[in-house]
């Protein structure tokens, strides 16, 4: 049963990364009512930034987080500020961020060409390394991503439950107008929240660069990972995204071993359908929480 055990571990860890990739879209759509496809670009550009620093300047891939995250956070916050100023509607946000996605993909292509970019193992020892516990291996990038996702999840939970900011966020998610009537500054909350979400996207990008190859068209390929997580986890829920990521990762892993990797997507989507039939607000949300 080492086979199943190892596969499940792999699925769980992968789920953490999926969750981090999805958090931006989930929070944005759930709390701010903005469908922000630009998060996919943030992940990609963060990954490219990490790649560039690690490959051409010899930075340790983990350390690139320090350089990459602030940049993406600023961009994310500025974008949200822009949305606030133009009073963007829901459909509009989808289309505008789609336009941004197209543009940023083109920028990536101009700088790094359309070809694959992978940090060579000489600059990135982590892709092949892992933590061993007994018979089981926990690959380093995935384990780090998972642990980071847990930390972020707990942090968000703390923020949401124990701070005024969190209360403001939850209030906005429940009823925007009432929240404003009670003095919640929508703009400040939105900008801070999107900054946080952008940070998680950037961190996800760094871990992706650490474990995979990048190319400009990759951003669009992530739709098939992020949207199932968002659906399962419930819009706006951080721990929900984490849970959903893990469920998806594990289901795919088990299907992969039991019936072959070609069945992995089907397992994910069967869960999706079941969830939508029985608990469409997401597996992990309480009906009115964030």
């Amino acid at each position: 049963m080492t086979l199943y055990g190892q596969a499940i571990i792999s699925g769980v860890l992968a789920g953490g990364l999926y969750a981090m990739m999805s958090l931006g879209v989930s929070l944005s759509w759930g709390v701010l009512k903005i469908i922000n496809l630009a998060y996919f670009s943030f992940i990609l550009l963060a990954g490219y930034g990490s790649y560039e620093l690690a490959t051409s300047h010899g930075w340790d891939p983990f350390v690139t987080v320090l350089a990459v995250v602030p940049v993406v956070v600023i961009v994310g916050a500025l974008l949200q500020l822009f949305f606030e100023k133009v009073k963007i509607g829901e459909f509009e946000s989808l289309l505008v961020t789609f336009g941004l996605l197209i543009m940023l993909e083109s920028v990536a292509r101009s700088i790094w060409s359309a070809d694959f970019r992978r940090i060579p193992s000489t600059a990135n020892p982590y892709a092949s390394s892992s933590l061993k516990i007994g018979d089981f291996a926990f690959p380093t990038p995935q384990l780090s991503a998972f642990l980071t996702a847990i930390v972020i999840g707990l942090l968000m939970k703390y923020l949401l439950d124990r701070t005024y900011f969190g209360k403001a966020v939850r209030a906005l998610a429940q009823d925007r107008d009432m929240a404003r009537a009670f003095g919640v500054d929508h703009r400040r909350v939105a900008v801070i929240l999107s900054g946080l979400a952008a940070a998680t996207a950037a961190i996800a990008g760094v871990f992706i660069a650490m474990s995979q190859a990048l190319f400009p068209g990759l951003a669009v390929e992530w739709f098939g990972i992020v949207f199932p997580v968002v659906i399962l986890g419930g819009l706006g829920s951080t721990l929900g995204a984490l849970g959903a990521g893990v469920v998806i990762g594990v289901a795919a892993a088990i299907a992969s071993v039991a019936w072959g990797p070609s069945y992995a997507p089907l397992a994910t989507f069967v869960i999706l359908i079941a969830t939508l039939l029985f608990r469409p607000e997401g597996l992990f949300t309480r009906k009115a929480s964030v």
Partner: peptide
Amino acid sequence: RLQGEIFALVTLAVAFVVAAIARV
């Protein structure tokens, strides 16, 4: 309760599922 965003996500999910079934 399946209105608004949830409805959007449900329809998106259906597209994923149809694709997965066709693939398998």
